[in-house]
Amino acid sequence: MTTLYLLGSAAPPLLDIAPVIEKAQSAGYDVCLGLTPAAARWLEPQLSELERLTGHRVRSEYKQPGTADAWPRADVALFAPATFNSINAWALGLTSSFVVGFAAEAIGKGIPLLTMPCVNTAYAQHRALDRSVAELRAMGVRVLYGEGGFEPNPPGQRRPYPWHLALGAVRETVPPRA
């Protein structure tokens, strides 16, 4: 089976992550869920159910030195939703959270990596976002942002997050194997 690391930041689409996991699993992926610390706090009441659903521990912290990996090796990783903070930290190499650290290291390990930001139009006006998106793309990350990907919402408004685009891009990048 193909292992998908699904990494998420604290953004509203994360609250609907269980159906996304189920869709990825039905497409043939073994899903491991990693969260930023804030995202883990948001999903605290659901963590045991998400672990049951994935069959893996949900991770939000780095493992202790000398501890065996809790997950199988990643075949592909999707960082979605990725907040303004996570995108900028990742592009700068600031790896204080497990998911950003994994994503930064995955570039060097050659693990196929995709991300789909989740930012509002106010954040999208900040020049750091465009620089960070360009930097990640230059490092080989497939960034689903703008036309054909996530398009920012006005502050305070919520449109459906295009999970179908993210999962479709994962399938295009690394098709599941039996």
Rank of each mutant, 00 (worst) to 15 (best):
Glu44Lys: 00
Glu44Phe: 11
Glu44Met: 07
Glu44Gly: 04
Glu44Thr: 08
Pro45Tyr: 12
Pro45Ser: 08
Pro45Ala: 10
Gln46Val: 01
Gln46Thr: 03
Gln46Ile: 03
Gln46Ala: 12
Gln46Glu: 14
Leu47Ala: 02
Ser48His: 07
Ser48Leu: 12
Ser48Asp: 08
Ser48Glu: 08
Ser48Tyr: 02
Ser48Thr: 12
Glu49Leu: 12
Glu49Gly: 13
Glu49Gln: 14
Glu49Arg: 15
Glu49Met: 12
Leu50His: 03
Leu50Tyr: 02
Leu50Glu: 02
Leu50Arg: 03
Leu50Thr: 03
Glu51Gln: 15
Glu51Ala: 13
Arg52Leu: 12
Arg52Ser: 13
Arg52Met: 09
Arg52His: 05
Arg52Asn: 07
Arg52Pro: 00
Leu53Val: 06
Leu53Pro: 00
Leu53Gly: 01
Leu53Cys: 03
Leu53Arg: 09
Thr54Gly: 04
Thr54Leu: 11
Gly55Thr: 07
Gly55Trp: 00
Gly55Cys: 09
Gly55Asn: 05
His56Lys: 11
Arg57Gly: 02
Arg57Thr: 10
Val58Ala: 02
Val58Gly: 01
Val58Asn: 02
Val58Cys: 10
Arg59Asp: 09
Arg59Gln: 15
Arg59Tyr: 00
Arg59Ile: 09
Arg59Glu: 15
Ser60His: 10
Ser60Gly: 11
Glu61Gly: 03
Glu61Ile: 01
Tyr62Trp: 13
Tyr62Gly: 08
Tyr62Glu: 12
Lys63Ile: 11
Lys63Leu: 15
Gln64Gly: 04
Gln64Tyr: 14
Gln64Glu: 14
Gln64Ser: 11
Gln64Lys: 10
Gln64Pro: 10
Pro65Val: 12
Pro65Glu: 13
Gly66Ala: 13
Gly66Arg: 09
Gly66Glu: 08
Gly66Pro: 02
Gly66Asp: 04
Thr67Gln: 15
Thr67Ser: 14
Thr67His: 14
Ala68Phe: 09
Ala68Glu: 14
Ala68Gly: 08
Ala68Asn: 06
Ala68Tyr: 05
Ala68Thr: 02
Ala68Trp: 09
Asp69Ala: 14
Asp69Thr: 04
Asp69Ser: 13
Asp69Cys: 06
Asp69Glu: 15
Asp69Leu: 12
Ala70Phe: 00
Ala70Cys: 06
Trp71Gln: 12
Pro72Met: 06
Pro72Ser: 07
Pro72Gln: 05
Arg73Leu: 12
Arg73Thr: 14
Arg73Gly: 05
Arg73Cys: 07
Ala74Asn: 05
Asp75Gln: 02
Val76Asn: 02
Val76Asp: 03
Ala77Gly: 03
Ala77Glu: 10
Ala77Thr: 03
Ala77Gln: 06
